[in-house]
Design a protein around this nucleic acid. Sequence first.
DNA 1: TCTAAACTTTGATGCGCATCAATGAAGTCC
DNA 2: GGACTTCATTGATGCGCATCAAAGTTTAGA
Lengths: 241, 241
Amino acid sequence: MTERNKCQQCAVRSQSLCNTIGSEAAGDLARIVHRLRVPEGRIIYGDHERSKTYSIIVSGVVKLVNTRPDGRHQIAGLQFPGDFVGRPYAATSNLTAEAATDLELCSFSGRVFEDLLAKHAELERALLQRILLDLDAAREWMFLLGSKSAEEKVSTFLSMIHDKMVLSGSLEVGAQGQSMIPLPLSRTEISECLSLRLETVSRQFSQLKSRGIIETSGRRQFRIIDMAALRAYSDAQSVSA
Amino acid sequence: MTERNKCQQCAVRSQSLCNTIGSEAAGDLARIVHRLRVPEGRIIYGDHERSKTYSIIVSGVVKLVNTRPDGRHQIAGLQFPGDFVGRPYAATSNLTAEAATDLELCSFSGRVFEDLLAKHAELERALLQRILLDLDAAREWMFLLGSKSAEEKVSTFLSMIHDKMVLSGSLEVGAQGQSMIPLPLSRTEISECLSLRLETVSRQFSQLKSRGIIETSGRRQFRIIDMAALRAYSDAQSVSA
DNA sequence: TCTAAACTTTGATGCGCATCAATGAAGTCC
DNA sequence: GGACTTCATTGATGCGCATCAAAGTTTAGA
């Protein structure tokens, strides 16, 4: 892929949707895109949303929330920079996509994007590949929800955040010992993501701190002191003490 | 869609992949398909499988198993008649697809099917739509794994089996009171699907029986006596007694 | 039909996390 | 900059499901 194939406007990382397609499709895509800033808490799509839009995240984090009639709710997925947000080919969705942090988006109006999908098979293929990755991730997360202990869940969550930061270029590989990493979610949101109560999440944070594996600063930042230990706790059974 | 557009060979239900595409693509697809019988327990793809194949299930159930180094494993999805089985665009998968029951498949060799995907955009679109449904289902199942009680999990599982039987035409709507429904999984497999222990699954079966909501016959058949109650227990909080 | 193996059910006990409750720290507004 | 509000931490207790253990049932094979 040559440099001019890349979408300069929303270039985030190489795997981004608009960087995996040819120049003609990319050109068409660039013509209909517009930049958008979205404040934390804003609903992007869901429930009673009529006007459909699709986006690629430039910066920030989107949470996909599964809300139930009885008030229980769960975060069914997090989308990071470079990820595609939207649900093509469906009038409604049981999920609500909400800005977990302030966002910058590359946004496409629903109708136009769908036409473009029909026009460029390669764009549709790129989308299919991306959705398949989301499906892999969802099935992997199912294992966490069903089979991991609270300790494993919180450790997995923190290393996942670290890995996403590295992937999106916001953090250098191996720099975790030095750099503070921003937490995109509150304790309550983390608990909804891991299917724990927030008290349990807090206790696991405390334990990881007391073991010297992580440090925290304020409510929204953490530093990984011992990455190897964090990874070990993420898939424990290995740890006996 | 006209009748001749339908793939007569593997026509299972209207949503099946080969029934949502045009006649030319369907013709090409029919030309490369071959029927295949697979005995229970056989691995369809996964782990160290080299030769890729894709299939549409004609009859039987496939389980997608997530196996971990430490021996824990979980069923990450079930595929029923009409469903697509395979993981395009990936050399490997962490999942193993295994015949939960004896199967009849419409099978496509990997290379040829991928060429066909590239040739017919409409086939790729149909696949994308199907994968999106799988993603919706996976995210819905995440809620079960993370947030439902053992009672809700088992009730949900049984009504899901019922619904799938109806969808695939093996059971008439509203006939649940009369007909025995075959269970495609053992207690152990059900427990791996719901992230419970098999003893807990068994206890929930017993409780549903003692309440007169279901009956069982042998290990692999059940009858739904009171569908409304079963549905209520599937999303409890509603039930207080 | 009898026997053995595999699977399922039922019972007793304990642990992990939820729940209830209170204190403490961090941002926000005047 | 002090008071308020929101969010996070820590503690005490209880319940749901895992775990350990044993008996019962179904299926297959001699």
